[in-house]
Amino acid sequence: MTAAGQGYAALQSAAASRYEARVADQNARLENEAAFRETENTKTAALAHYRRVAQLKGEQRVAQAANGVSLDFGSAADVAADTDMLAREDVQRIYDTGAENVRGFDISASNYRSSAKASRFAAKGAIVKGAFDMASTALGGAQQYSKMKAA
């Protein structure tokens, strides 16, 4: 009876470990999807920033032209160049932040995959342990029986 209980416990432990592996696999897939969405969101944010900068540059040009300022040289050209420079820096920060977020998702996905692998290994280990426990119990019972029979 004890051997059957050990076998059942081993099967239950293996099933729990396999379930943990499935959950970890699903979490890894969700992290991969989040990384993809973050990449797309970063591209969208950069595009939106470029559009805001284009609008700002247009407003600057209109204001300068309305005040009779030549747009091709001097302060007006410096303002345009500075606007472009700051826009590039801002977009670089947008992409850097997005890349850092994606890196976090990639690390989490990798951790989940490792956890799933460990859980699958634990499931196999539980089955092997259960088999050895059952065999040990059976051998112990056989040994006791042979002692009783000999006496």
Rank of each mutant, 00 (worst) to 15 (best):
G140S: 11
Q92R: 12
S75E: 08
A80N: 07
M1I: 10
A131W: 12
G130D: 05
A123T: 06
R51D: 07
D72E: 07
N32S: 10
R22C: 06
A28F: 00
E89I: 04
A131M: 15
G74T: 04
A118V: 02
G68M: 03
E59K: 08
M1T: 08
G130W: 00
I107L: 11
V53R: 04
A3I: 06
G5H: 03
Q64E: 10
D90S: 07
A4C: 06
A151D: 13
A63N: 09
I94H: 00
E40Y: 03
E20L: 06
Y95R: 09
A54V: 08
L11N: 01
D78L: 12
M148I: 11
M148K: 07
L86C: 03
A16H: 11
M1F: 13
N41M: 06
A16K: 10
A76D: 02
Q12Y: 05
K124A: 07
L56K: 06
E59H: 05
A48M: 05
E40N: 00
S70N: 08
T44L: 05
A35K: 07
F36K: 09
A135H: 11
L47G: 12
V91Y: 00
M1H: 04
Q64A: 13
Y145W: 12
S70P: 02
A46S: 13
G58H: 02
G140Y: 09
G140D: 12
D25Y: 05
Q6R: 13
L139Q: 15
G74H: 05
A24T: 00
M134V: 12
D78N: 11
A9S: 08
A99Y: 15
S146R: 14
Q64G: 01
